[in-house]
């Protein structure tokens, strides 16, 4: 089965098509290394995404009719990027009448470093001086998530790590962004390199395949991005209330 994977939740974004034999086509762009607010916005991926998918189909010499399932990264990450990815994936699955599978961006990060003997903490920049994270432990053939998807300040995460014995591998652009805070924890903490800073669609395809084979699909209508912050509403509400009393 050929699966189309879409990952647009972070400043590095990718599309991949693959089967159990491996990836047959992939496209990746990163705005992470570029300066300027326009490169930090997920909105820019709207322009890139559909042409990139068509590029991959053409490169692999196949058409949409060959796609048997759609996999999408649900975040956490950039809200706009997540929405563009999830909306695109939903419409593709709907128009193609194929199943859809959603995976967390943090799971993809941890999956790619699963051969580490250490427990893994996937950390993505959550902006507003916060990080998104979850802890994993390697398990036969994959990884096992040990904690809930969490959003908190890097200092809070560092305190949490310090309070527990043992070693940990931190991966993701959040770990790199707050490197100084995590390095203070000493040699029990190892920080993954830039090469593992972002989730990739290739890992998404690999992880989605077994789910598609055991028919562990997501509901098309129910699938939505993992925002992790419910407070956006509340923050806005408070702002409106303030402006009203002003």
């Amino acid at each position: 089965m050929l699966v189309l994977g879409i990952e647009t939740a972070t400043p590095q974004t990718s599309v991949a098509i693959g089967s159990e034999q491996g990836v047959v086509a992939s496209a990746l762009v990163s705005r992470a290394a570029l300066d300027g607010p326009q490169h930090k916005s997920g909105a820019i991926y709207n322009e890139w995404l559909m042409p990139a998918i068509r590029f991959c189909l053409e490169g692999a010499g196949i058409g949409f009719r060959n796609i048997g399932g759609v996999a999408v990264s649900l975040g956490p990450g950039l809200y706009t990027g997540m929405r563009v990815g999830v909306a695109t994936a939903k419409a593709l699955a709907q128009a193609l009448s194929v199943p859809i599978v959603g995976m967390a961006s943090l799971d993809l990060l941890a999956y790619e470093v699963r051969y580490s003997p250490r427990p893994i903490c996937a950390v993505l920049d959550g902006r507003r001086k916060e990080v998104f994270h979850a802890f994993y432990r390697p398990s036969p053939g994959g990884i096992q998530r040990m904690t809930e998807y969490t959003v908190e300040r890097a200092e809070q995460l560092a305190n949490g790590i310090a309070s527990k014995p043992g070693e940990v591998l931190l991966v993701g652009n959040g770990a790199l962004l707050y490197r100084e805070i995590f390095e203070e924890l000493g040699s029990s903490v190892e920080i993954g390199t830039m090469g593992h800073a972002f989730p990739r669609a290739a890992a998404l395809v690999e992880l989605a395949l077994p789910r598609l084979y055991r028919e562990d699909f997501d509901s098309l209508d129910g699938l939505k991005p993992l925002y992790l912050r419910h407070s956006a509403k509340r923050i806005q509400w408070e702002r409106i209330r303030e402006s009203r009393s002003a």
């Binding site: 709207n46 559909m50 998918i53 809200y79 909306a87 695109t88 419409a91 128009a95």
Partner: peptide, 19 residues
């Protein structure tokens, strides 16, 4: 609203592309 527009545009592109 840009965030709202993006959702419709993403889905419309995907459907047109598949068909």
């Amino acid at each position: 609203l840009i965030g709202s527009l993006l959702v419709g545009v993403a889905e419309a592109k995907a459907i047109a592309s598949v068909l």
